[in-house]
C-alpha cells in the first residue's frame, strides 16, 4: 500500500513537473537522460561488476544511427551532410516523427548488436582492464566518426527542428525521456527479480565460482550489456533530435562528460542497487547545475572535487551507506525460527 502510494506520487510528479516548472523543461529532460544512463550503466557496472567506461559509445552511436535513419526517410544522407547547413531541407511532420520513431528503434537494435560484438572481444578483460578497453573503443569511435564525411565528419549533423511550437517541443522531448526512463526502471526492476539477475550478481561476486557452478558467464555478460546498450542507444537517438545539432567529439562520443558522469551518478547513489542510480543521477544533476550557475569559473573544480570525494570516501553511495547503517531495512537479520517450526505453522 505504502509502495503504491510512493509510486503514485512519483508518477504524478513526473507528469506535472514540466508544467509547474516551465523554465526547467530541458533541465528536467536532461535529468531523465542522466537517470537512464545511470540505470543502464549500473546493469553491468553495479550488478555484474564490469565497470564499463565505454557506454558512451552506445549513446554516440545511437545519435548517429537515428540521424542517418531520420534523414534518409526524406533525403540522400551524403547530399544532406555535404550541404553542412547551407542547403534548404524541409521535413514533413510524418518524416520528422517517423524519423524519431524508426531512428530510435534502429539505434537501439544497432547498439545492442554492437555491444555483442565489442563484448565478445572486451569481456575477456577483467577489472580496470575492461574499463580502459571499453574507454578505448569509445574514444576510437569518436575519432573515426569525426573523419567520416558521409556523416558530416568533424562538423557533425544538423537535424530539423521540432515542427510546431517551441515550448510544445520541449514538453515533447521531456516526455520522451521520462517515458524511456520509466520503461528502463520497470525493466531493470523486473530483470533483477529474475534468475537472470541473480546470475549477473553471481558474476559480480565471483565469476570463477559461477563458471564452476555451470553458468555460461560470457553469454550472460553479452546479453546484459546488449540490453543496456539498447536503452542507451535509444536515449542517444532522442538526444540527437532534442539537441538539433551534434558533433562527434564533444556531443556524441563525449567520453569526459556524460561518459564519466554516468559512473559518478551510480557511485553517488550506490551501485548494485535499484534506486541508487536514480537517486545518484538526481543528486549529481542538481549539484552540477547549481555549481554551473553559482560558481561559474570554478564549476569544473567543484565537479572534480565531488568526483574525488565520492570515489575516495563514499564509494558505497547513499544506498550502500544506508545498507551498512540499517541492514534490517533490507531484510538482513538473524532468523530465530527453524524451518521445521515454520512448516508446523
Amino acid at each position: 500500500m505504502n509502495k503504491t502510494l510512493l509510486y503514485g506520487i512519483l508518477i504524478a510528479g513526473t507528469i506535472i513537473a514540466p508544467f509547474i516548472l516551465p523554465d526547467y523543461r530541458t533541465q528536467l529532460a536532461t535529468m531523465w537522460l542522466m537517470i537512464i544512463v545511470a540505470l543502464t550503466w549500473d546493469m553491468t557496472g553495479g550488478q555484474m561488476g564490469y565497470n564499463s567506461l565505454g557506454n558512451i559509445f552506445f549513446y554516440g552511436t545511437g545519435m548517429y544511427v537515428a540521424a542517418v535513419v531520420g534523414i534518409s526517410l526524406a533525403y540522400n544522407v551524403a547530399d544532406y551532410t555535404n550541404a553542412a547547413g547551407g542547403g534548404i531541407y524541409k521535413f514533413t511532420d510524418g518524416q520528422y516523427f517517423g524519423g524519431i520513431f524508426l531512428g530510435s528503434i534502429a539505434a537501439g537494435l544497432f547498439c545492442a548488436a554492437c555491444a555483442v560484438i565489442i563484448g565478445w572481444i572486451t569481456f575477456g578483460l577483467r577489472g580496470p582492464y575492461f574499463a580502459i578497453g571499453t574507454l578505448g573503443v569509445a574514444i576510437a569511435a569518436g575519432e573515426l566518426v569525426s573523419n567520416w564525411d558521409w556523416v558530416g565528419g568533424g562538423q557533425g549533423i544538423a537535424l530539423p527542428v521540432y515542427p510546431g511550437d517551441f515550448n510544445i517541443g520541449k514538453i515533447f522531448f521531456y516526455f520522451l525521456f521520462a517515458g524511456l526512463g520509466c520503461a528502463v526502471f520497470i525493466f531493470v526492476k523486473w530483470l533483477y527479480s529474475t534468475r537472470f539477475g541473480a546470475a549477473m550478481n553471481a558474476i559480480r561476486d565471483d565469476e570463477e565460482k559461477a563458471e564452476a557452478m555451470g553458468i555460461h558467464t560470457l553469454r550472460y555478460k553479452l546479453i546484459a550489456w546488449a540490453m543496456a546498450a539498447f536503452f542507451v542507444g535509444i536515449a542517444g537517438a532522442i538526444s540527437a533530435f532534442q539537441l538539433i545539432h551534434f558533433e562527434p567529439l564533444e556531443t556524441a562520443y563525449q567520453t569526459i562528460n556524460l561518459g564519466i558522469f554516468m559512473v559518478v551518478c551510480v557511485l553517488l547513489g550506490g551501485k548494485g542497487t535499484l534506486w541508487g542510480p536514480v537517486i545518484g543521477a538526481i543528486m549529481f544533476h542538481v549539484f552540477k547545475e547549481v555549481t554551473w550557475n553559482y560558481l561559474l569559473g570554478w564549476q569544473w573544480v567543484a565537479l572534480g572535487a565531488l568526483i574525488v570525494v565520492t570515489v575516495v570516501y563514499f564509494q558505497d553511495g547513499v544506498m550502500g551507506w544506508l545498507m551498512l547503517k540499517r541492514p534490517e531495512w533490507f531484510g538482513m537479520k538473524v532468523e530465530q525460527k527453524t524451518a521445521s517450526a515454520e512448516a508446523v505453522k
Partner: peptide, 18 residues
C-alpha cells in the same frame, strides 16, 4: 568461494542446476 555480497538464500538459489 561463495557470492559474498548476496545473502545465503540468494547464494543457494543461484546454485540451482542451470
Amino acid at each position: 568461494r561463495i557470492y559474498g555480497a548476496m545473502d545465503c538464500v540468494q547464494n543457494m538459489l543461484i546454485s540451482l542446476p542451470h
